[in-house]
């Protein structure tokens, strides 16, 4: 039977649009991100009052927080404390990946289990293949998280800029310096932005597909926590390994952590920015992650149809993978 890609994409985009709209409309999402954004906006002026001199500053434009990939290597070579810097950069990036991944995993699990427990799946499957349902949701959650991330970053930058017009915000530089990162040295240029974006998207695709698979084995909202746990454990494992191994250095360990999927989502871009690996290894790391994402997608394709109409006890991730291996997907 001919597979109609055009129709698949159109239908999948409707799932994407609907899921994204509902993520934005969701009351608890609005509350959570409202609080987060409020914290981001208020943290700079509040901290400036508490930590700064509190006096009015000459109008000198926004604060100077720059992250420059090109000059970072130089800074690291001559920097005062390489260990602190490495640890701070790794820790900061790993936290970013972890937050995005855990949030995304939770949203994906909730979206899938909600649909299953609401007994909507069969109604949906009249119009759409199960992979398109899940893929549409993954993309919607990714778009939602990227929007929230960019929104948060923009609001923080705006808060810094506006606060900098009225008061001293030099404490931000002091905090960064305390972490081993000097202000004025770091600016997020387009190249670094692209590296971060690609790395985040790949991390998202890997972790979210595991969560989606795990969620597809659930039938009720009560099972949601267990499904969430499976994805979160994989994310936490990657996070912990990357933050422990990063400051250790060592060529073999660096290469292993760059190429080992799930850990590399947290460490590969940091190793690259730190100058520990070159483009070749970074692209190799991305390729492995992309390949694994494809394999997970193929596995998903084999089992979703059966899982998605499954009701009853929760099918665990291990059983799902075994089902896919035996070709018992439908």
């Amino acid at each position: 039977m001919r597979f109609l890609w055009k129709k698949w994409v159109i239908i999948m985009s409707k799932v994407f649009k609907f899921t994204l709209l509902q993520l934005f409309k969701n009351k608890s999402n609005r509350i959570v991100f409202g609080i987060l954004f409020a914290v981001l906006i208020l943290s700079v002026p509040v901290a400036s009052v508490l930590l700064g001199d509190g006096g009015a500053k000459d109008i000198g434009g926004p604060t100077e927080i720059y992250i420059y990939a090109d000059t970072l290597k130089g800074y690291l070579e001559n920097g005062p404390d390489d260990f602190d810097t490495r640890y701070a950069v790794q820790y900061g990036y790993a936290i970013l990946v972890m937050i995005i991944s855990v949030f995304s995993a939770t949203y994906i699990v909730r979206a899938i289990v909600e649909e299953k427990s609401s007994k909507l799946v069969e109604t949906l499957m009249i119009s759409i293949r199960s992979e398109a349902i899940i893929f549409g949701k993954l993309l919607a959650v990714m778009a939602f998280m990227i929007t929230m991330l960019m929104g948060g970053a923009a609001l923080f930058a705006l808060s810094c800029a506006v606060t900098g017009l009225f008061t001293d915000v030099s404490f931000i530089g002091d905090v960064l310096a305390g972490l081993g990162i000097s202000k004025g040295l770091l600016t997020i240029g387009p190249e670094l932005m692209l590296i971060i974006l690609i790395s985040l998207v790949l991390a998202f695709l890997l972790f979210s597909q595991i969560s989606a698979l795990s969620a597809a084995g659930c039938s009720t909202m009560e099972d949601m926590e267990s499904a969430n746990m499976a994805g979160t454990m994989v994310i936490l494992a990657g996070y912990i390994i990357s933050t422990i191994t990063m400051p250790m250095g060592g060529k073999a360990l660096t290469i292993a952590m760059t190429l080992c999927p799930f850990v590399s989502s947290f460490s590969a871009p940091v190793y690259f920015v730190m100058g520990d690996i070159g483009w070749r290894l970074l692209i190799g790391s991305w390729a492995i992650q992309f390949l694994l994402a494809i394999i997970l997608y193929k596995i998903s394709g084999k089992v979703y149809d059966r899982l998605i109409i499954h009701t009853g006890r929760r099918i665990k991730l291990g059983e799902i993978l075994a089902m896919a291996g035996k070709g018992e997907g439908r």
Partner: peptide, 10 residues
Amino acid sequence: YLAEERGLYP
């Protein structure tokens, strides 16, 4: 199709 197991997004 009106499935036996049917529902709506609550």
